[in-house]
Design a protein around this nucleic acid. Structure first.
Lengths: 185, 185
DNA sequence: ACCTGAACACCGTTCAAGT
DNA sequence: ACCTGAACACCGTTCAAGT
């Protein structure tokens, strides 16, 4: 007689994400995750290939969450980048995992869709891709460095972030002109 | 009678860095490092507190190497950022470690000295700090995303990097004007 | 069809005992 | 003063045996 399922892949990934954020990657042991979902470690292998794959799933789920947050932020570039930073602050371990674990490429790519939409609205389709890359690369690096404590030379980091946003958004406006012939209307 | 030293902290960190780059963080086991320096694992604890501290030392050494490379690149911002990218390509695991492990704060901070010198030369002392933060944050994010395979939408990445460098450096010039009264000389 | 105990290989770390 | 074997706790993973 088939044993009833005592957990699910969704619950497993969710608990792994919770443990990750609480104790860092080292705390995400198969035994800890299994215990959190009320099962023994070997049972996890019915739903996930191995620990690395589980971390990949946690990263993919985090990417999906981030995509949703960015989507909700709309087309205002400042709001978009602020939502990005809020996510990194709220879930720093998950954020790091996006660039550390082997995350499903499609989930990772989906993250840039709302950014592309916003940059297209701001500077036109022509320059949307390089503009999106510029903004996401800068924000990613800023947050990685902020989380690593690499910003040591004085100053409020909130202000530094806002400064960067203003500077970069302003720098993109000339790129919009390139879309139209020259000093277009 | 005292046993002669069979290794040194420098050799240990060096071998750990080599193993890290070859096999990733998981390959840096105390046994693997000990074997590489011709000793048994317990002996490592004479020179290093634990594995996490060893990884921190590897990160600090990488930061020192990076600082030296950036120093050699001089004050040209393009050359500086290209040297940054070359380092990340040559030693991707060490580069990631800078933002992942608990690296000595001073070693990490020293990295930004050559960047500050270069931005000071380019935009003046006044704007040197925000300019340096802007450039290093962007480069860091670009490289993190590049190493993670997060750039999927077409295009040559060499070109994309060069584009970003040009765009950012150009965007910093107006900041230089702010240093002088208005539409100065 | 899912779950588990037992087992295996491996890892980080400690420590008493060697030289 | 450094090195090691032995030991311990813990981890990832497999698998036969349960239900």
């Amino acid at each position: 007689m088939p044993t009833p399922e005592r957990t699910s892949i969704g619950e497993i990934v969710g608990e792994a994400a919770r443990i990750l954020e609480t104790g860092g990657p080292a705390a995400v042991t198969m035994q800890a995750v299994a215990g959190a979902v009320g099962v023994k470690a070997p049972s996890l292998y019915k739903r996930v290939r191995d620990r690395e794959a589980l971390l990949g799933l946690v990263g993919a789920a985090a990417a999906d969450d981030l995509t949703r947050l960015l989507d909700d932020a709309g087309d205002d570039l400042g709001a978009l980048l602020t939502a990005f930073r809020r996510f990194a602050h709220a879930r720093p371990e998950a954020f790091r995992l996006l660039f550390t674990a082997t995350v499903d490429a499609d989930s990772l790519a989906a993250t840039s869709v709302p950014v592309l939409r916003a940059t297209a609205a701001a500077v036109g389709d022509e320059q949307a891709l390089p503009a999106a890359r510029l903004l996401t690369a800068w924000a990613t690096g800023f947050l990685m460095m902020e989380l690593a404590g690499a910003f040591r030379l004085g100053g409020d980091l909130d202000e530094a972030f806002a400064y960067g946003v203003r500077h970069l958004v302003a720098s993109l406006v000339p790129a919009q002109d390139a879309e139209r012939p020259a000093q277009g209307s």
